[in-house]
Structure formats: C-alpha cells, structure tokens
Design a protein around this nucleic acid. Structure first.
Lengths: 145, 145
DNA sequence: CGGCCATGGTTGACATATCAACCACCTTAA
DNA sequence: TTAAGGTGGTTGATATGTCAACCATGGCCG
C-alpha cells in the first residue's frame, strides 16, 4: 500500500487539506483588508506585538513561526508605512515597537478579525471538529523522529 | 459571547489552524524541490495537466482553484523553464500542453510527493481524523448564504 | 450586417515568501 | 586579549500571490 503515487482517494484528502486553508485564510485576510487597509500578515504582526507593546524581533519571529528573514522584510515594509518602529538596543538586539498609527489600525481591525474568524471558521464547526483540528495541528507540528 | 476580539481560547484554535497548513505544505514543498528542482506550485500545475495531457487554461484554473491571473503568471514562468507549452487555438482559447521536460520532471516528482504527503500528513492521522478533515474542508469551502 | 458585451487571457504594479550570503556584534575559551 | 563561533539581523535575488486595468475575440441580438 505504498504505491509510487497517491491514489485518487489519498489525493482527495490532500486536496481538501490545502483548499480548506486557502479558502478560510483568504476570506479572513480579505475581510481585514477591506475594512481597515491592513493586510493579513500585517495584522498578524501587529496583533502579537500588542500583547507586549514591544518585543525583540527574535521573540516576535518565534510567536509567528516565521523565519528571521521573512520577518525582517515584512517589518521593513511596515516601518515604511509607520505601523511599527525599530529601536536598536545594543549591537545585536532590535526592539520592535508599535506606533500610534499601528495601534489604531490594529484596534480597528480586531473586531473585524474576530468576526471573520468566527464566521468563516469557528461557528461552522462542531466542538468535536475543533478539538480534532487542534489535536491534529499539534501532531503535525512536531518534527518526526 | 460575541466579544469584540477573539478570546485566548479562540485565538489558539485560529493559530493551530494556520500552523497546521504552513507546516505540512512547507515540508512537502521542500521535499519536492530538494529532490527534483520543481517548486510546489509547479508540481501542482504539472500534476493536473498530466491527467489530461493538455487542457484549456480555464479548466486548469478551475481544478487548481486559482484565479486566471495567478495561473497566467505561473504558466509564463513555467514556459520559460520549458515545463509547459502554450498553444493558441482560436482567438480566445489557449491550450496548455505538457512538454517532454515537464513530464519527466513530473514523473520524477510523483513518488517523492506521494511519500512526503504520506509521511507528513496521512500516516500521522487516524482514519477518523482524516474523515473530519475532509468533512470540515467541504464545509468551509462552501460560501455562506 | 453592426454593435454590444461577456469571456479568456495578459499585463504591470506591488506585496509577500524563500534562500543563501553577508555582517556586526557578543561569547567563550585558549 | 585575541581569535573562533554562534547569534540576531539585513540584504538581494528570485519566486509567488493579488488586484485592477486592459485587450482581443467570439457570440448574441437588434
């Protein structure tokens, strides 16, 4: 049962798995953008940042599960739009700080995001399905032996 | 219970949902690239194409669930790498054809893909979890009223 | 026939993602 | 104290995704 290509059945599962995310992520992202002008990734960054007010870039990357390069590029763009500030602490450490603009946009986006996530994901699933999602996510996140 | 932002619990679910996708897709994509030089999207296109040998761009976009622009750009890059050919049929229709190179690379990638999907997804889930994924995917794919 | 107009496709501009190379600084250990 | 290594960040190149504007053509209707 280890054929050299996926069976139609296996492929259907794979396909479903991909679609699910593109659909939902796409919708939530568009909702946020339409209402506030923030992109999905921008919202993500601001959201984590708001938890602490300011963070070392490192820590931020960890929370987002992004690699440092991806984050650095993203921050550069966000800095140009005055959503965040970079503050060099010592030769190695950079503090990322939420600006006034950033916080305002974030606050505007929060309810949109909450509503959209509920509408497009949470409210459409049973508690059981949600449990499965979370369990599966943890499972798949682990690196295999 | 419709707060203006997500509760930590709700947020955890949302986070898990996103991670699951990025983890698995990332791993499968990297496996394919490493072994064959094809990117994930390239493999996706070739894979569908192989089913029929050739297709109208339109139909291809439908199967992939991509918009026409995305596909057009992708095909342009793939054409430059000789993975596919565009064949203008009448003023409006373009046939996409798998080239020899394209087919070879696809064939090389197939077992890698199958193996990776099984290793990173299928074999790590119970049948029940798989059923849930598929059911949930269908659910979320539908547009709400 | 002659003029809409919907459709299939392309394009340009821009945002995002990924990879590898680089850099400057800190740490540690000789 | 100095050189090797590791760490936090940046950068450039290239691939990918998204949006809106555009364009040519074929179909349809008057």
């Amino acid at each position: 049962m280890t054929a050299k290509q996926l069976s139609p059945q296996e492929f259907r599962i794979w396909h479903a798995f991909r679609l699910m995310h593109e659909d939902v992520l796409g919708r939530v992202g568009r909702d946020i953008t339409q209402a506030t002008g923030l992109s999905g990734p921008e919202f993500g960054v601001l959201f984590r940042l708001a938890g602490k007010g300011e963070m070392r870039q490192q820590a931020l990357a960890g929370m987002l599960n992004w690699d440092k390069s991806r984050l650095s590029h993203q921050l550069t763009r966000m800095q140009e739009r005055s959503l965040i500030e970079r503050r060099r602490i010592d030769g190695k450490t950079v503090l990322i700080v939420l600006t006034k603009v950033g916080r305002e946009k974030l606050d505007a986006a929060r309810p949109i995001h909450a509503d959209s996530v509920r509408r497009n994901l949470l409210s459409r699933l049973t508690q059981q399905q949600i449990d499965t999602i979370v369990r599966v996510s943890n499972l798949l996140g682990e690196v295999e032996e």
